[in-house]
Simulated assay, not measured.
Amino acid sequence: MKGSIKKNPQTGKWDIVVDIGKDPFTGKRKQKKKRGFNTKQEAGKALTKILNEINEGTLFEPANMTVNQFMDIWFNERRLSVERTTYQNNKAFFKIYISPQIGSLKMFKVTPLILQQFVNELVEKTNLASSTIHKIFDVLKVSFSRAVKLKIIKENPVVLVDLPKVKKAEMKVWDINQVNFFLENVVNVKRPSKYITAYLLAILTGMRQGEILGLRWKDIDFQTKQIFVTQTLSHDGKELRNWTKTKAGKRAIHIPDVLNNHLTVERKRFLENKLMYGNEFEDNDLVICTKMGKPVQSTNLLRAFKNDVKKVGLPIIRFHDLRHTHATMLIQQNINPKVIQERLGHSRIGITLDIYSHVLPSMQQEVAMKLDEMLGTNTIL
């Protein structure tokens, strides 16, 4: 690396100029300049310090690129490392919210103050949920973290921003009487819901929506009465993935006779339908599919469930809450939490206990009664 010291004829002071290589983004030569040293000796010391930092690899000089320019690079990387839907969601958040606000700024000029003002505007001027604002800033946090590693910026300003507190959504579940009432009025009627199989899978296995919509007939062992969760359907219904949300998500679930018998009947109907439509049938081997064998869009399932719940007059809950209902029923039957964790496909038992801690206080009285039974009321008196 080369450096020079020159006296500025206009100011009478000494300036230094150091050639620090090429800009990795533009390919152009970069120079570091410092001006205003009182003596040539001071300028010489400063030049030596910079040259030492260059040799040791500790010199930091921010790249001269905008947020938009860097994000183009980052998204090219991101596309190869995350799921398609995650990539699309990240890009949508950037285009809609981030780029209009800070896209034209130089990366090194994005400060915590600028980002905090951005947060405040999202809170005050939009109807976005706090969870959505967190997702927007998750995109910034991860991308700027990558920029630090690439030495485009020195520090990640996103980590110093205060985000609005996310309100934990209140979990709504049905009790066993409501579950039975729903099934009686949706199954045992002249025209049962076409999504009854999906409802039963959610209630009796606790499977996730994507797991249910991605379930294949070959994943069911009718002899051992087990379902093997190995495939999911993406949220947009465009991709069948032969992987699950987590490693623990790939699991075997034992099913009750009522579900095994129902699936046996549905399997026969599936084969009859396949035979009827012949070459027009799109055989994905899906348990939940359209009459032509195509995957069911999640929006159609959710809409149908909401309408069916309204028809029978039960409290409205989300389809995902059937999974919570399943877990809650098992906890109330004193099933070991470890078994519930494995059944739901949680990676850690702590996740299971945290999500369903609301059920545990109601069981405290039962524990006290059990202790009385074991010890006897007059044991200590």
Rank of each mutant, 00 (worst) to 15 (best):
K268M: 14
W217S: 06
Q297P: 00
K165G: 02
K165C: 00
K91V: 07
P100K: 07
E266A: 09
I220V: 10
L233H: 14
E272G: 02
N334R: 08
K294V: 04
H320F: 08
D72P: 01
G44D: 04
N180V: 13
L105K: 13
P62D: 00
D72Y: 00
D23W: 01
G206Y: 09
D219E: 08
L113E: 14
T299A: 14
L275M: 08
V339F: 08
R348N: 09
E282W: 09
N89W: 09
F319V: 08
M374L: 15
V189W: 00
V179F: 07
K22R: 09
W14S: 05
G313V: 06
M292R: 07
K30R: 15
N127R: 11
P112M: 14
A43F: 07
P295M: 04
N260G: 07
L140C: 03
E61Y: 13
L314W: 13
K247V: 07
V159E: 10
T264W: 02
K45T: 10
G345H: 10
D283I: 03
I340W: 01
K40S: 04
D308K: 10
D23T: 00
E124I: 11
F60R: 08
V18T: 09
Q31F: 15
T352N: 00
T66K: 03
I351T: 11
T85F: 09
L381P: 00
F60Y: 04
T205D: 07
R323A: 13
D308S: 10
D285E: 15
T126I: 11
K167G: 14
H326Y: 08
Q333I: 02
